[in-house]
Design a protein around this nucleic acid. Structure first.
Length: 919
RNA sequence: GCCUGGGUGGCGGAAUUGGUAGACGCGCUGGAUUCAAAAUCCAGUUCCCUCGGGAGUGCGGGUUCGAUUCCCGCCCCAGGUACCA
């Protein structure tokens, strides 16, 4: 009886859907388990075999947990706002909502084909107004909040207003855009507009004039994580710096907590490290230099205040506000020329070219805060205006950039930490004894750092300080296809919409492009106002909707709250989150930020969203190339291509049988190849192969639908797992499927001895039970460790052994059905039904191994003979070393001699193995 | 440059705390079955070799009775990040 995968897949998928087999239970006293996949952006290209890899792994885990008796939440939805749908809309005039609906439909079909155990009753798209109503609501909560560093948490803006009313800024320790100081009286005297302006300085969602990454080609601003190497992540267009009025999120207020939280979650070290680098905490000191002949001071930040005695000049960023003041008449022309040049260089040029040293002397001098020496003030574009105070004290002996600068402009270099050879290069290491440093001499430099900070604080010329690389996140986008920001402007003052007015839905526009005078597309909408006041025209970035979606699944249809407290308390953190590591500095950081905020405000009771995170690797495609001889329409087989001058062209992998090209199929592919000639080797045309990213444009895509159609969903599921460790990237190879397909057939045959379903009720063979329980043990361990690839091997081994033994007892085979259910749910359901068992196998208890079936008889065997002879004995696990020795002595062969050789030594590993060295 | 991860057959990849390296699968070779092919089944498959063995987990050392595993020094690959003071 053959396994008909088409019929069986169909039968169970409909049944699951009809019965809601995978819907999470409500009002249960079972322990919960929340498994989540990073929801997809439904692109027009549909899914390829790489996309479901993580979904399959999480599905196996979720099914396993369900069988272990947990109430499992495993939902799915779509992250549907974003650029591709909008760009398509710009080109075709079609509303992005329509494109999104079509793509979503396609994704759903493809996902259903694979037989995922998902709770579709909680499905939503981030573009649903019923969802983004609450994204907008969260924005309003952020607008109505500030961050109190004294208490280390976010608080409602009313508490800040109360503080300002009573004390002004006295005693205030808030996260802020710029440092403000005023009294309660001054505060009260301000107009409403002035007060609103001041409050924006503290709000967690705020509007300010700031330097942004502007992408002219896309016509929008981008967040730091959306820019790679000075180009936009999407499209690869150049990005320039520009000052603009912008909505931002004060994520920097949470920098320390975002770092600290990493210690409490189970993520990969590399991912945590990526986030730590991105946050970029440095501890050091702020140091003040008086300016020779002028009022005011230059503030610098240094992680090495211990080297202050080695500071021989000060460098300001070209844009630094003090440049104008310190520049002498004689240097003014040169300085202005340098500033102009630096301003003309784009961020990208500046980054690409870090070798060229450039700078200019201002003519002014700063006063060394301790020695009182005059040190020259330079400007140089190696100093970034946006980090720290935009000024550095240059210590060329112990900083490689300062060293290069000093060498280039012939500035003095003073060694203050022993250990390097400063004639050759700077000594940047943070170890060594201090020299040439007055009261620090002889100290270890890290001790000297502490001492110096104390000293500076004592004389009022500096204080300990911490800097972060992390910047506030730009939140507004000059685009159509995003959540409207729920803000209107009354006499120029930004105000948020009341809850009754939400959702603020996207208006209809005639075109999805900016207006002629550069306003965002929403400005095209007729009557884009609230109560007669103009509404904000920028929309939210792609990461807004994905920063809290895991909470919505807990209570997906709640119209009165983003999610009810009872639901969020029960489901709590996501226990297992599976997705790609490319979201390390975007989504995964922003959702941690929003979670901490919602926690502070008491809306949820946990402050880290994802307890355990697994990053799945990418499945690559193996592209095929044909080689066309330049200037001809003749193609030469791969083995002969070096004899010609050729160009490699992608050929569709579907034309290949192994590495051999189906020449006819290729000829019919495109008009230009119709009359192509082929130079064969051994009568075949062989293509060369290369592993690349799987992509439509490389013609190396495998569609999961085709695999499901040919081999069934279970084979696809098991093969994707069998491919290798989940975290690793690996190429897709369709050939390998036959192994898993053959396994499935063999497994099915175990239950169909003699052609029809046939199990014996006699007791199982002892060896069969051993094979089954070995498999149970291995699979349980593998799933817990998330290494499902070796589970498939374990299934294959057990199946081969059972086939060889010819055992078809119910006792041995019934547990195998429950065991394989998470991997091959359709197969398992079918067999479960044939076994006459009640209910879905997906709710049947997961098998637990019985140690008694696994015990080996102890045995002795020689492992090698190499000058000395060694015996290795496997003994009972419970023996002490002394007992082991007794056993060995009792053994005839080891009673002092083995043959004519005397025992030299026992090496006893307690509890397991004894080695006996003989010689 | 810095941080993180990783180098095992023709390929994907296995190897508790150090204990017979190469499980499982693909591919390949030979055989059975077949008019033939596909499918299926059986046997073999790390490399070298004089068929008795010898070498072998990126390279060079070390610890150990014993190292893919632990330590030291290199090389290479992948990802992240980059004038962040």
């Amino acid at each position: 009886m053959e396994y008909n995968h088409r019929e069986i897949d169909q039968k169970w998928q409909s049944k699951w859907a009809a019965e809601g087999t995978y819907n999470a239970e409500s009002g249960t006293d079972k322990e919960k388990f929340y498994v989540l996949d990073m929801f997809p952006y439904p692109s027009g290209a549909g899914l390829h075999v790489g996309h479901p890899l993580g979904y399959i792994a999480s599905d196996i885990f979720a099914r396993y947990k369900r069988q272990k008796g947990f109430n499992v939440l495993h939902p799915m939805g779509y992250d549907a706002f974003g650029l591709p749908a909008e760009q398509y809309a710009i080109q075709t005039g079609q509303h992005p909502e329509k494109t999104t609906a079509i793509n979503t439909e396609r994704y759903r079909q493809q996902l259903d084909n694979i037989g995922f155990g998902l709770d579709w009753s909680r499905e939503f798209k981030t573009t649903d107004p019923s969802y983004y109503k609450w994204t907008q609501w969260i924005f309003i909560q952020l607008f109505d909040a500030w961050y109190d560093h004294n208490e280390g948490k976010s608080k409602h803006i009313d508490s800040l207003i109360a503080h300002l009313n009573a004390n002004g800024t006295e005693g205030l320790n808030a996260a802020q855009t710029e440092i403000l100081e005023f009294t309660a009286v001054e505060w009260s005297a301000m107009s409403e507009a002035e007060q609103a302006e001041v409050l924006l300085n503290y709000r967690l969602a705020y509007r300010s004039e700031s330097n942004v990454n502007w992408c002219p080609a896309l016509g929008t601003v981008l967040a730091n994580d959306e820019v790679k190497d000075g180009l936009s992540e999407r499209g690869g267009h150049p990005v320039v710096q520009k000052k603009m009025m912008q909505w931002s999120m004060r994520i920097t207020a949470f920098a320390d907590r975002l770092l600290e939280g990493l210690d409490r979650i189970d993520w990969s070290t590399s991912l945590k490290e990526t986030q730590r680098n991105w946050i970029g905490k440095s501890q050091g000191a702020t140091i003040f230099f008086d300016i020779d002949g002028h009022e005011g001071q230059i503030e610098v930040f240094s992680t090495r205040p211990d080297t202050l005695f080695g500071a021989t000049f000060v460098t300001l960023a070209p844009e630094h506000e003090l440049v104008q003041k310190v520049t002498t008449e004689g240097q003014r022309e040169a300085v202005e020329a340098y500033q102009a040049m630096a301003a003309a260089r784009s961020e990208r040029d500046r980054m690409a070219d870090t070798k060229t040293i450039s700078g200019c002397f201002t003519g002014g001098y700063a006063i060394h805060p301790i020695s009182g020496a005059k040190v020259p003030i330079w400007i140089g574009d190696y100093v970034l205006a946006s980090y720290g105070s935009g000024a550095v004290m240059a210590v060329p002996a112990h900083d490689s950039r300062d060293y290069a600068f000093a060498k280039h402009f012939d500035l003095p270099i003073i060694e203050v930490v022993e250990g390097g050879d400063i004639a050759k290069e700077s000594y940047d290491a943070k170890e060594g004894k201090m020299i040439n440093s007055d009261f620090l001499n002889g100290m270890e430099c890290m001790d000297a750092k502490v001492k110096m900070i104390e000293h500076l604080e004592g004389i009022g010329y500096g204080k300990g300080a911490t800097q972060y690389k992390l910047r506030d996140a730009i939140f507004g986008r000059q685009r159509y296809w995003g959540e409207p920001i729920p803000v209107y402007y009354e006499n120029g003052v930004a105000k948020t919409l009341p809850l009754e007015a939400l959702p603020l839905t996207l208006p209809e526009v005639d075109k999805y492009l900016p207006t002629e005078d550069g306003e965002p597309p929403l400005a095209r909408a007729e009557n884009w106002t609230f109560n007669g006041h103009p509404l904000e025209t920028t929309t939210m970035p792609g990461w807004a909707g994905s920063s809290w979606y895991f909470l919505r699944y807990m209570d997906a249809h709640n119209d009165g709250e983003f999610a009810g407290k009872a639901s969020t308390d029960y489901w709590n953190q996501v226990d297992l989150y599976v997705g790609g590591s490319e979201h390390a500095t975007g989504h995964l950081l922003y959702s941690r930020f929003w979670t901490k905020f919602l926690f502070d405000m008491g809306f949820i009771s946990f402050d880290e969203p994802f307890k355990k995170l697994v990053n799945q690797g990418m499945i690559q495609g193996i592209s095929a190339f044909v080689h066309r001889i330049n200037g001809t329409n003749t193609f030469v087989s791969a083995g002969l291509k070096d004899q010609y001058d050729t160009q490699a062209i992608h050929a569709d992998v579907s034309f290949l049988q192994g590495d051999e090209l189906d020449v006819e199929a290729f000829k019919n592919w495109r008009e230009e190849y119709k009359n192509a000639e082929f130079i064969l080797e051994d009568g075949k045309y062989i293509c060369s192969r290369e592993v690349e990213k799987m992509s439509k444009s490389k013609f190396n895509v495998t569609n999961p639908d085709d695999i499901v159609e040919k081999h069934g969903a279970d084979v696809l599921r098991m093969y994707e797992m069998f491919l290798g460790p989940i975290e690793q990237s690996k190429p897709w190879n369709t050939q390998g499927l036959s192994g898993v397909s053959g396994f499935q057939r063999k497994f099915w045959k175990l239950f169909h001895k003699g052609g029809s379903f046939n199990l014996s009720d006699s007791p199982a063979d002892k060896k069969a039970l051993k094979a089954v329980h070995t498999c149970i043990k291995k699979v349980n361990e593998d799933i817990e460790n998330f290494s499902m690839n070796t589970s498939i091997s374990a299934f294959m081994i057990a199946t081969n052994e059972l086939t060889d033994l010819g055992d078809n007892s119910r006792e041995a085979l019934e547990p195998m059905v429950r065991l394989i259910a998470p991997f091959a749910p359709h197969l398992a359901e079918e067999l479960w039904e044939k076994l006459g068992c009640k209910g879905s196998v997906n709710h049947a208890a997961y098998p637990v191994h019985n140690e008694a079936y696994l015990v080996e008889d102890s045995k002795n065997y020689p492992i090698s003979f190499n000058g000395k002879m060694r015996f290795q004995m496997e003994l009972s696990l419970s023996l002490s070393p002394a007992e082991v020795e007794a056993v060995v002595r009792a053994d005839e062969r080891t009673a002092g001699y083995v043959g004519d050789k005397q025992i030299r030594k026992f090496i006893v590993v307690p509890g397991k193995i004894v080695n006996i060295v003989i010689g």
